[in-house]
Simulated scan of single mutants.
Amino acid sequence: MTHSDAWENHRLALPNKLFHAVRAGVPVVATDVGELAKAVREHGLGTLYRPGDTRSLARAVEEAVADYAGLRRAVLAASGTLSWEADAHRLLAVYDRLAARRHGQDATRRADAAPVDHGTDEDRQR
């Protein structure tokens, strides 16, 4: 994943490709920029390189190849936390709390409660 450090939106971005890689269970080689680098470091999702530095990129690729098995284990360990299902659960809990606050009630669904089953991707597309 290549990002420049020249624009704020790149420093703040978490590209879908990162989450696609996590879903596929494979590590990434990504630029050492902002939130992308933070996520890669925090979860051990791969290796990082300095934007625009070809030697740094080559080193990051070599490190990813050399430690592929270890990086893959880290990606798999993080996959539950970085999944759409986990995000959906957290978002629904926030919406429930906001709705309950608006209506002066306690939220019925909590962030640590079991996730709600929203069917398959195919069901949601119908």
Rank of each mutant, 00 (worst) to 15 (best):
D67C: 03
S56G: 12
T47Q: 14
A66E: 14
G70I: 05
R73M: 07
P51L: 04
T54L: 10
T54G: 08
R41N: 09
R50D: 06
G46K: 02
S56C: 13
G44Q: 10
A66G: 11
L45K: 09
A69L: 10
V40T: 07
A74D: 09
R55W: 11
A58W: 12
V40N: 00
L71C: 07
D53W: 05
P51D: 08
Y68N: 00
R59M: 08
R72F: 02
H43R: 09
A60R: 00
H43W: 11
A64G: 04
S56E: 05
V61M: 13
K38P: 01
D67E: 14
A69D: 15
V65F: 07
E42W: 06
E63S: 13
L57R: 05
G44E: 08
Y68R: 12
G44N: 10
A64Y: 02
Y49T: 02
A39T: 14
G46P: 03
R59Q: 11
R59I: 06
E62C: 13
G52P: 02
V61P: 05
Y49M: 01
V61S: 06
D53Y: 05
E62K: 11
Y68A: 09
A58M: 13
T47C: 11
Y49E: 02
G52Q: 03
Y68Q: 03
E62S: 15
R72P: 06
A74M: 04
T47D: 06
A64I: 00
A69P: 07
A60H: 06
A64R: 01
A69H: 11
E42Y: 07
E42I: 00
Y68V: 06
V65K: 09
K38S: 13
K38C: 05
G44D: 06
E63V: 01
H43E: 03
A60F: 06
A66C: 03
A60E: 03
V65N: 04
A58Q: 15
L57Q: 05
G46V: 09
V40K: 04
G70D: 14
A66N: 08
G46F: 02
D53H: 11
S56T: 11
R72K: 14
R50A: 10
R50T: 14
S56R: 12
Y68G: 02
E62F: 13
L71P: 01
R59L: 10
R41G: 08
E62N: 12
H43T: 07
E63M: 09
G52K: 00
R55G: 15
T47I: 06
E62Q: 13
R72Q: 15
L45R: 07
L48W: 02
A66P: 00
R73K: 09
A58H: 15
